[in-house]
Amino acid sequence: MSDFVRNTIRFVLFILLQVYVLNKIPHLHRFITPYIYFLFILWLPFSVTRQWLLLIGFFTGLILDYFMMTPGLHAAACVLVAYVRPFLINLLTPKDLSEFSYREPSPKAMQWTPYAVYVLVLTLLHHTYMVFLEWLDVGNFLNFIIKVVSTTGISLLLIFTAELLFPRKLKFRTNTA
């Protein structure tokens, strides 16, 4: 399966999961909506260029926005995540690229600790920015902090559960294909 097909399927599944499961389940609390759809951006292959990352991120967020009738909210957060992602990957992956032959970010490719940092920073970024934009409408600083922390916690839980439940097949970049 090509990267394109894999990621398209993954995209559809993430959006459907987010729209029809995570947004439908009774909320644990009025602050907490579990978010996982942006894991799609975190899982995009290393080979995607930065401009494409930004565009993909923008449309991922926008499509979710149109389902949730909040045009621009998730799109803005996703563009931010997509923009920061390459910097983080540069920081957290080994510099010697000849050793490094994985296709996309995963615990196996980056080791657990750097991967956890990668996920944590981007999740926190996504939620902070999104909740901040929401907060501009209805301001309450304590709510803002609680919401960021709690949603981030729930999302991290979901992401690591997903990571453990669906270990992605290790695909190596080779010169032969």
């Binding site: 401009q51 923008f58 967020g61 909210l73 923009y83």
Partner: peptide, 25 residues
Amino acid sequence: TFFTFLLLQGVALWFLFSYNRFHRV
């Protein structure tokens, strides 16, 4: 890349705030 980022952010925020103001986009 940075300009693309700014542009897309701008579009997203424009969507967001014009939606909030006019409730359609």
